[in-house]
């Protein structure tokens, strides 16, 4: 009798488990459906660009002047990294050309300025805008200010940051056509609980982090807001698109912050900078 009861008990508990499993399975399925619907909505929202400040509202001169060619001027480098300007300018032709503009050969333009003794953008302030049209036939010039190009270490942590400010100016009217700025910070800290281990991992991550992907990240965020040029299929049709840089999401290991969050930016600059 006692045995029977035990067997019955076991049976019922197995049965119970089976029921529980189907309940869990159903719950899981429901959860997956809900999650994918939510993910779907989020993705669609990310692609949608009509919200907020429109490109026409932000950059009306750009739609009026209809510039075709852009001259990228030597960057003004306010960081302590001597090669930042030269390296950063290597990344600028791609996003501008992809936005539909003719970009005058960046290495060539730089060599012309270098022959005149101009290496840093700070030396350009005395040059009147019409000169750029006379020399190169460019409709607009892009002023670039590099604000961040540094590796910083702090106790058990590290960052690599790239940041820049852009201003596109018409060589015809002298008007500012478009401007934008952004900073991308990558956190290179280890995420272990061990202090010493983190220290080592941070040192390795920080010293091997390349600036190129960060520069490209800044570019893709910033140049997404420029009205498209004549070589782009959306030329003249993107007035209603957003002129705002999307807020940066905290990815798994890449802690990025937009220029808006001053707290983070100032935190970076106050660290010891090793270039």
């Amino acid at each position: 009798m006692a045995n029977k009861i035990t067997i019955n008990n076991v049976k019922s508990s197995i049965c119970h488990q089976a029921i529980n499993q189907t309940v869990y399975l159903q719950m899981a399925k429901k959860f997956i459906s809900a999650a994918s619907i939510i993910a779907c909505l989020l993705v669609l929202q990310a692609c949608q660009t009509t919200s907020g400040y429109s490109k026409l509202q932000a950059y009306p001169n750009m739609y009026q002047e209809k510039i075709k060619s852009i001259l990228v001027l030597p960057a003004r480098n306010t960081t302590t990294a001597a090669d930042a300007a030269q390296l950063y300018s290597a990344t600028l032709a791609l996003p501008l050309a992809e936005a539909g503009y003719y970009v005058l050969s960046v290495p060539y333009v730089e060599s012309v300025f270098a022959n005149e003794g101009i290496i840093d953008g700070a030396q350009l302030s005395a040059i009147p805008l019409y000169k750029y049209q006379q020399l190169f036939g460019a409709d607009a010039v892009l002023f670039v200010d590099i604000s961040h190009w540094n590796t910083s270490y702090y106790i058990a942590g590290g960052n690599v940051a790239v940041g820049a400010k852009f201003q596109l100016v018409s060589t015809n009217s002298g008007e500012t056509l478009w401007q934008q700025n952004d900073v991308v910070v990558e956190n290179t800290s280890g995420d272990s609980d061990s202090f010493l281990f983190n220290l080592i991992i941070t040192a390795i991550n920080t010293s091997t982090t390349d600036y190129l992907p960060l520069a490209n990240k800044v570019n893709s965020r910033v140049f997404n807001t420029i009205p498209k040029g004549s070589y782009h299929p959306l030329y003249g049709q993107d007035q209603e698109q957003s002129a705002l840089i999307p807020a940066q999401t905290n990815e798994h290991e890449h802690n990025s912050t937009s220029s808006g969050s001053e707290k983070r930016a100032s935190k970076v600059t106050s660290h010891i900078e090793i270039n």
Partner: peptide, 17 residues
């Protein structure tokens, strides 16, 4: 929804001209 998600993401991915 998953299908829409995937196709939209591919549409969003950087394709160069």
């Amino acid at each position: 929804c998953l299908l829409v998600c995937v196709t939209t993401l591919t549409g969003c991915a950087a394709k160069t001209m």
